[in-house]
């Protein structure tokens, strides 16, 4: 059974795809210039009764932020940035990690073991803090000595590089374990070279594992982005808006409606106007849940071990009913007479 027929995988996949494509289509029809804005709410007598940020379920479905922009609009519009960004980063992580991992698996055994132990520390060090330490100076301290594009490229590179060692070691270990199989030595005997072994034997074996790893890296990227958002490091770029010139009240504002920066930029409002933070957080939760559904379905399919389901020991046999032969009267008579039908 293909993984595409599992309802768990399909539901996760549909959620992700509809979020991503829905966001692109939505922002095609409702660009940011036409975004729903309501700064002041009036009652029937045209009396102002409320001002932004408006609470949810009154006029705007999820309320508005403090500039009066609908949160629902921001969340739908931001999905394509957050998801697209995560797709890109996770793909780059996997690409470089796999490449380096395959190379690493061809090196002598002690090198593989020592490097896998060395890079184990990347797994234990808090990734958020390391990423923050490297991205923060570029985005906030020497902002002027590096052009804007280079800043973005650099922060993306950091987000990629931070996970490459772990992916690399995982792939290398997986590959070298696979190469210990007995049929690999027959491949060698029959004249298969290194490249042949990698292309014809290792890659087909790795493919399902890589798709699991891809979804896991997507989850890790999303979490990392959310954490960095809380630390006021916005991936889409930061603007500063002065709310009250007299009180030196300047707040960082994200340049695009990306979810993690929405959380970070409005985090100080969580005690009062919590819906501004909860809506993008819920977006993250739904996305990660959908991705986990996909991971779970793929794990059950490819690795034959699921995370939450009980593995049943009984193999259900499907009893197909015997096909009934249609006989003509002539054939029937012949069978009754001779015992065979020809």
């Amino acid at each position: 059974m293909s993984v595409w027929r599992s309802p768990l995988f399909l539901s996760g996949f549909l959620i992700i795809v509809s979020l991503f494509l829905g966001s692109i289509i939505y922002s095609h029809f409702v660009p940011n210039e036409k975004q729903p804005v309501m700064q002041i709410r009036f009652d029937e007598q045209k009396q102002p009764i409320d001002s932004a940020p408006l609470a949810p379920f009154k006029e705007m479905p999820f309320g508005t932020d403090r500039f009066g922009v609908s949160i629902l609009h921001k969340v739908i519009d931001g999905a394509k940035y957050t998801l697209g960004f995560a797709f890109l980063i996770a793909f780059a992580r996997l690409f470089f990690g796999t490449l380096l991992g395959l190379i690493l698996s061809q090196l002598p055994k002690p090198v593989l073991r020592i490097s896998s132990k060395l890079f184990e520390s990347f797994y234990y060090a808090p990734a958020t803090i390391v990423a923050y330490l490297l991205i923060y100076p570029v985005l906030q301290i020497f902002t002027w000595s590096v052009p804007k594009e280079q800043q973005t490229i650099f922060s993306m590179m950091i987000l990629i590089l931070i996970a490459v060692p772990t992916v690399m070691v995982t792939v290398a270990n997986e590959t070298s374990k696979f190469l210990e199989n007995e049929f690999i030595s027959s491949v060698k005997v029959l004249g298969g070279g290194r490249i042949h072994k990698l292309r014809k034997h290792v890659l087909p074996y790795l493919k399902p594992r890589l798709s699991i790893l891809y979804s896991q890296q997507l989850i890790a990227t999303l979490l990392l982005a959310a954490h960095l958002g809380i630390l006021q490091v916005f991936i889409g770029g930061t603007d500063f808006v002065t709310l009250d010139p007299l009180e030196n009240n300047t707040v960082p504002v994200a340049m695009i409606n990306e979810w993690s920066s929405m959380i970070g930029a409005n985090y100080y409002q969580i005690r009062g106007d919590r819906w501004i933070v909860f809506a993008p957080l819920a977006g993250f939760a739904v996305t990660i849940l959908a991705l986990n559904f996909m991971v779970e379905a793929m794990k059950r399919q490819y690795l034959a071990k699921g995370a939450y389901t009980k593995r049943s020991r009984k193999v259900r046999k499907v009893k197909a009913p015997l096909q009934v032969k249609k006989l003509s009267q002539e054939q029937f008579d012949r069978i009754m007479k001779t015992g065979t039908d020809n």
Binding site: A226, H227, L281, F284, I288, L289, N292
Partner: peptide, 13 residues
């Protein structure tokens, strides 16, 4: 299993 997928920020908040 579904609860485990919730991001940690979400749980704390």
């Amino acid at each position: 299993f579904s609860l485990e997928s919730l991001p940690d920020i979400f749980i704390v908040v």
